[in-house]
Write a protein that binds this DNA or RNA. Structure first.
Lengths: 247, 247
DNA sequence: ATACGGTCTACTGTATGCAGAAGTCGAGAC
DNA sequence: GTCTCGACTTCTGCATACAGTAGACCGTAT
């Protein structure tokens, strides 16, 4: 081997064009999270295809994926519908999140690195600052980042996959009412980081558990105050009428 | 409404024909679990289509699903490959399982019903009997059933979904070396049931945690004895040669 | 031989076509 | 007016067709 290409391997392998199904998946997830596609809504493949400018094939594949992650329900023979979570389901999902996040914290305490701790402290400061300035978006972002960082520090890739998936759905359900519970949340984060830093696994897990459990309680309270604000009965099959309704 | 149909609603709604993609999914999962499709193997869509007697479309949809659950890896532009778990990944998956199963036990203890306990005891007896008679299959089945039963008793449907998914994969990875650890396992199960019956949530969670943790340790030991028995390097792209190789 | 380059083929990604199912609308019977 | 029945429409599920690409094979030059 005399012809060796310069060691610029950082040039990164050539980027395969991202498959359409991926981009459709991303796009539709956005549409669902942003409520442009309402829960319960019937997703007609041909409409989506036209809207996104692709054929039905990538749409169908994206729908499969969205279905398997709980964003849409695929009813054989009837098509896809945006998933409409029940109150009980959200609660259950938050419980699962609790368990997984607690485990993350436990493992993170065992695998903590100096850089990791520093990063956590940074994020914590960002969060506190965001609360002080009442910047909701930054708050949410810092919170998500911090939790993700903890899970990454667990060193468990499989766990990271699961938690990411659960968290995305939690954010979808929960974000509309998230702004509360800002102050206390970041004190808890600080305690958590302390426990992780000192390698106190059980303590870290306990704190994380209580932390996420409080989030769940907060959700339940919110729900009790304005119960099921948008509980349109899932229309069994919302066909478009053949002729436009008279105006 | 004078014409009311007899109250035989138990007749159950008409059964839509199960979509092909579902059956393909089932079939392929079987093929993977039974090792007829080896880890790392390239799954050519047209071959599968011909083998199963359907077109590529349902195959592709099934592959999407299998991919999202970690059974196959979809490499854009290169096709589908049976997932080849690394040792680390299996370990990590077993950790996640531990956390989720422990949570199941905790919740089960809080929601225990008389019937549930009875069913658990039944399964436990079956398991003990299977061990006594050295019936591997029955052992595995009873074990799976028992764990599933516990998760069902948790009353958390979301949790049940996750645990089921994780358990299926664990069984795929782990079954070949499962037979060990029979005896002690069922004593632990008995203790677990006791804790659930008395509603001792923390105790139930602790027992389940240690129980599954021991399973993980057992896995690690097995691996240490015969490390990576079938670690064929994943062929990057096993094309079929144009002309059959000369015999 | 060994290296290089062109052609060719197998495979994926995407689009289109077709059949069947299920709801909708309207006309006719009562 | 209300009910019933049948044609129509729209949608999904599945199959097929087409294009682009990446590797395999093979001849040629060195």
């Amino acid at each position: 081997m005399s012809t060796e290409l310069p060691q610029q391997l950082s040039a990164r392998r050539i980027d395969r064009p991202v498959p359409l199904r991926e981009r459709v998946y991303q796009a539709m997830q956005e549409l669902i999270i942003s409520r442009q596609l309402a829960p319960g809504q019937h997703l007609v493949e041909s409409e989506l295809a036209e809207t996104l400018g692709v054929s039905r094939q990538p749409i169908r594949e994206a729908l499969q994926l969205l279905n398997s992650e709980g964003w849409v329900d695929l009813r054989p023979g009837y098509g896809a519908f945006v998933h409409a979570p029940t109150e009980a389901e959200v609660d259950q999902l938050l419980m699962v999140r609790s368990a997984l996040e607690a485990e993350s914290a436990r493992l993170a305490a065992l695998n903590a690195t100096r850089q990791g701790i520093l990063r956590l402290r940074e994020l914590c400061e960002e969060g506190v600052a965001a609360v002080a300035n009442d910047e909701i978006d930054k708050m949410v972002t810092a919170n998500a980042e911090l939790h993700r960082c903890v899970t990454e520090m667990s060193g468990n890739q499989v766990l990271l996959d699961f938690v990411s998936q659960v968290d995305r759905r939690v954010r979808w359900y929960y974000t509309p009412i998230a702004r509360h519970r800002g102050q206390q949340s970041w004190t808890e984060h600080a305690n958590l980081i302390g426990a992780i830093e000192t390698g106190n696994a059980d303590e870290a897990a306990r704190i994380m558990r209580e932390h996420t459990e409080r989030t769940r309680q907060s959700y339940l309270e919110q729900r009790r105050e304005n119960p099921e604000p948008d509980v349109q009965p899932v229309q069994t099959r919302s066909r478009r009428r053949r002729t436009a309704p008279r105006v």
